[in-house]
Design a protein around this nucleic acid. Structure first.
Lengths: 180, 180, 180, 180
DNA sequence: AATGAATGAGAGTTCATTCAT
DNA sequence: AATGAATGAACTCTCATTCAT
């Protein structure tokens, strides 16, 4: 039951953060939405920031799991295609969570905190990707990987900003065709 | 001289916003950085929000001008290539301004205000673009335009996040090759 | 075993109060240090204030006992000397407890509560003392007693503030010489 | 006029602190008593602690001035008598201020802050005093000085606790007789 | 045009206390 | 006897905004 309360606080926080942005959200409004007293929230999380970090960490872990990313993986063409498809489809399932994530990327203070933690795991993933590009004969596989990531992020971003109208399938096919 | 004061306030606001994010910035610190009293700031702008909106509007106008975007333009392949190059190079010149812009995109409350104003002008540009894709024989030019925009935004985003290391030229060439 | 628990709570409270001061101490930290749940603490004491009062009452009783103070005692010169020595040596044995006591003297709200209770017992002691001064031929024995008490308190205070360096023996001898 | 406001805040703070003790006092109640908004108080002082420090610093300076204490002074018997009389009479004039001071001595956290600042100036005064005792032929002038200070503090303390009834004159004469 | 004193609402956070279990 | 989840009021402090000067 403790876990349940915790989850409901995180749910509430997510939706408030997503609606108003992290800095503009108040702990009061999170508590209210979670139907919990402000005091109790501090029983579960030691600060507003910790709520945010928890949220993002969870999301990141969840994404890693869904994408089935493991360290030092060798990426085949088949797998590469899968990564593209999942990367684009997953965020759309829960746009709220991912929008929050995106909104933090350009928030200097928070972004640094996050990157600190995620850098290592992201790093090995990046390496795997650039090895894929190397195996495909790219001259500068590192650069190719970065361009690819940027393009993928762009697609994700637009999917999140307008999940209903953005031509997701076409975008997917475009990416796949370009890089396989 | 009134214009000068105004400009210095906007400058100060930009750098404060960029450093701390809009919501975490205080009017006091903007005034201080602009070497102006808080009272005077309110003489020029009626609220903190208006300062932000002004900043973004100006940036938008400035971008439109640099990109030489005019209503109902017919885009040639040459011009298309130019648009790509400018779109990627311009933000890198003043990353601070553009980062602020990006940080707002996922801030529901502010984003809506902005879109309201910019939608019309953006609209005609989008139309021009999709006509370009139509002329190039794309089956669904509207979709192509959206995919293209997403990819371009992704590149811009990564350029802003890591202006020094991102392989800008490669990204540009990639985009150009794909769409011409 | 109930008594044991109670005692361990009082111990914990004493050390927390001594470290941080009464008002700055939290019930949580007392409970934690006593290795007891907050709820249980309230089973033994009905409020934080009661814990404090108990602590001070106990200390007072304990001091009275050590000083062997009984109502209507007739104080001889020998006994007077003993009182001085004990009064100065006792606090130094457990500076923590006595420092807490001292810290309350100038805390209006708490001090009143305490005095209320202790006044009667202190009264008879004061009377005994002033009778001693009367027997020694002091013109205004009441005044002499008060001056003496003040001087003694001064010594105690300094002993507690710097137990290691304060010249305790010299102070004792000084007092004894003055008043016998 | 700014100075006036500042003074009225300090006045209010003094009386609130004196009544309830530093930790038990709230900034709200200080502001209320000063007939000032909470916000304004923070315009004048950057924290509750700074209000306290200001108060104590001012008091200390004021006392030093009244006692006419100067570095490296050579204390004569006449001057020594004067110091005793002033030391006892001054606090009684404004018991509130001095009670606050006393209440802090046993407040670990604050006391340290204060001592840090005052130590140097107190030091030279202590030196002067111990030189006086040396000149009077005391075997251990340092110890004599400490005992003397303790006794004096005891008198001051009791004067403050019961200004009306404590036999101040007798105490003064007692001290003077002992040490001259 | 320009100041900065002043406000009041609200921010995040803590905590003594209660109560269902 | 014992827990710790839960509360709500109060805490210190911040800040956008106004206004007398």
């Amino acid at each position: 039951m403790r876990a349940k309360r915790r989850a409901s606080i995180l749910d509430a926080a997510l939706s408030v953060f997503a609606e108003e942005g992290y800095h503009a959200s108040s702990v009061s409004s999170i508590a209210k939405r979670a139907e919990v007293s402000k005091g109790l929230l501090y029983n579960y999380f030691k600060s507003k920031e910790e709520v945010l970090l928890t949220l993002v960490r969870d999301l990141f872990d969840y994404a890693m799991e869904l994408l089935k990313i493991v360290p030092d993986e060798v990426i085949t063409e088949e797998r590469f295609r899968e990564i593209i498809e999942l990367s684009i489809d997953i965020p759309v399932e829960e746009p709220q969570r991912w929008r929050l994530y995106m909104s933090l990327v350009f928030q200097r203070d928070v972004a640094e905190l996050l990157m600190q933690e995620m850098a290592p795991r992201m790093g090995t993933y990046m390496t795997s990707l650039s090895q894929y590009f190397q195996s495909r004969g790219y001259e500068d596989p590192m650069a190719a990987m970065r361009v690819f990531s940027a393009l993928l992020d762009g697609i994700q971003m637009h999917c999140l900003l307008d999940p209903e109208n953005f031509p997701r399938e076409q975008a997917k096919q475009h990416l796949i065709k370009q890089f396989t």
